[in-house]
Design a protein around this nucleic acid. Structure first.
Length: 286
DNA sequence: CGAGTTTGACCTGCGC
DNA sequence: GCGCAGGTCAAACTCG
């Protein structure tokens, strides 16, 4: 496995800095963000002030999601699943005639629940038990590092992830998962901690608990070293994938039960596996 | 030869 | 309406 190694040690920057740097991303994500030390013992740092619902009525963060969450499902589903029609048309790239996009212009791009986390690692693409296929790379504005786009190789799975390095600290990789896997991991590498965890969390992203950073005392604590958010704790007090629709900020659930991850019975044993893999029994609640 | 990566072009949404 | 930036596509290429 692509060992998730890191020099360990303290973060070279504060949570504020980290999030200030990636605030745009986090804001855009609008769901949840964790800060994970790839040694599986890192801190999950709170995002900076979660932009309060903007007066403009735009929900920005959630907006990115909500504004494009709705109907576009067709396209998303399509292109992730072998790209039928649309993609086929698009194949005729040099022929911007009816432009593939045009036909589906009305449909906004679908957005699945997203979960982002930062990992201090030198490895760009962390092994997380799933197989990914890179489908694009783009230079990111104000960042010397490109952003890579990956899709789960399982053709029935629509999960995507973006990987980019923090322009502030090259040693930090920001990974954003979008969607949920409809299958189990291909492999379950021990030690793939951070990525695996996030992946699993993304996997269980269907537990759309609505809550806001501010509603999470621990999460929003000014303290950057909140033990509550060491990775193991994350698994147990879990940072639920935040469905942070800022216009309906509400705390639906915030539990310290490890079982909460796999609670509604829809998450397969994989989550348990995660716990088994990462959370020492003693650390689990009860 | 199949699977995965690279890379330039294209599409879309958004702010000005 | 225009330009910018993010996101995606797919041909070409690489690698095992």
């Amino acid at each position: 496995m692509a060992g998730v190694e890191c020099g360990g040690g303290d973060w070279p920057f504060s949570a504020e800095e980290a999030y200030a740097d990636s605030s745009a991303l986090l804001a855009e994500i609008g769901w949840a963000a964790g800060f994970v030390d790839d040694a599986c013992a890192g801190e999950l740092l709170p995002p900076l002030d979660p932009p309060p619902a903007t007066p403009t009525g735009s929900m920005e963060g959630a907006g990115a999601s909500s504004s494009s969450t709705d109907d576009g499902a067709t396209r998303e589903a399509a292109d992730a699943d072998g790209r039928p029609a649309a993609a086929t048309e698009a194949a005729s790239k040099p022929a911007p005639a009816p432009a593939p996009g045009k036909t589906m212009k009305k449909q906004k791009r679908a957005r699945h629940p997203r979960f982002a986390f930062m990992t201090k690692t030198e490895i760009d693409h962390l092994e997380d038990g799933y197989r990914w296929r890179k489908y694009g790379q783009k230079a990111v504005k104000n960042s010397p590092f490109p952003r890579s786009y990956y899709r789960c190789t399982n053709n029935k799975c629509t999960v995507k992830k973006r990987v980019e390095r923090s322009s502030d600290d090259p040693s930090v990789v920001i990974t954003t998962y979008e969607g949920q896997h409809c299958h189990h991991t291909v492999t379950f590498p021990r030690g793939a901690g951070a990525a695996t965890l996030a992946s699993q969390m993304a996997f269980s992203a269907h537990h759309h608990h609505h809550l806001m950073y501010n509603d999470l005392p621990a999460l929003h604590s000014p303290t950057t070293q909140n033990p509550l958010f060491s990775v193991p704790a994350m698994s147990s007090s879990l940072l639920q994938p935040l469905h942070c629709n800022r216009q309906e900020l509400q705390v639906a659930s915030y539990t310290t039960q490890a079982s909460s991850i796999s609670s509604p019975g829809s998450v397969p044993a994989v989550d348990k596996g995660l716990l088994d893999d990462m959370v020492p029994p003693a650390m689990r609640h009860g």
